[in-house]
């Protein structure tokens, strides 16, 4: 049997995971198992639990594109899908719609309940965020990266609209 992640090497590691009664099974080669953090010391909270790449390499997600890149770390959704690694906290906002099905599969839910972050008031944080995006937009205009420009303009508009609503 070939590795279900890379499809190139023979599978040597079997990984089984059950969450909320839903069982997922994977056959991985040694390289992919290591890349997914499956090893002798699975560790605490990582390791087998981190088969995120596996969740993403399904046919529907293989068509992930490079058009949009995260403004903070420069990763595209294809980068994330191929490596199974999210680049930075802002990737979750940039690729929210693409990531949501995987998050749903992992947790069964997609909306946070519990402690909220304490950093600053919401208003001031949004203002800060808009300033940051405007700066990035200016840079994108200068290097004539119009695809990024479009994404950034949408994000700025979204934030500004949200602020007036709130």
């Amino acid at each position: 049997m070939m590795c279900e992640r890379c499809g190139k090497r023979p599978a040597t590691t079997y990984v089984k995971r059950t969450i909320n009664g839903q069982t997922t099974e994977w056959h991985l080669c040694a390289e992919c198992a290591a890349a997914e953090g499956v090893g002798l010391f699975g560790g605490f909270g990582f390791g087998v639990g981190d088969l995120f790449g596996g969740f993403l390499t399904q046919p529907a997600l293989r068509s992930a594109g490079d058009a949009v890149r995260c403004a903070t770390c420069g990763k595209s959704f294809r980068d994330i899908a191929e490596s199974g690694q999210v680049g930075c906290p802002d990737c979750y906002t940039t690729f929210y719609e693409q990531l949501r099905p995987s998050v749903q599969r992992i947790h069964g839910k997609t909306v946070h309940a519990g402690k909220t972050a304490l950093t600053g008031t919401k208003e001031s944080r949004i203002k800060e965020e808009i300033e940051k995006l405007k700066k990035e937009l200016q840079e994108a205009i200068e290097r004539q990266d119009y695809e990024t420009c479009a994404v950034l303009r949408d994000k700025i508009k979204e934030l500004e609209d949200g602020r007036h609503d709130g």
């Binding site: 995120f52 999210v86 946070h112």
Partner: peptide, 25 residues
């Protein structure tokens, strides 16, 4: 620590973590 460091947080996804298995709390 959060008062000084500004932890990454999203109202929908909670605290943002390197691995999505830790999102939320």
């Amino acid at each position: 620590l959060g008062e000084k460091l500004h932890f990454a947080y999203d109202e929908r996804l909670g605290f943002l973590t390197a691995c999505p298995t830790n999102l939320g709390t």
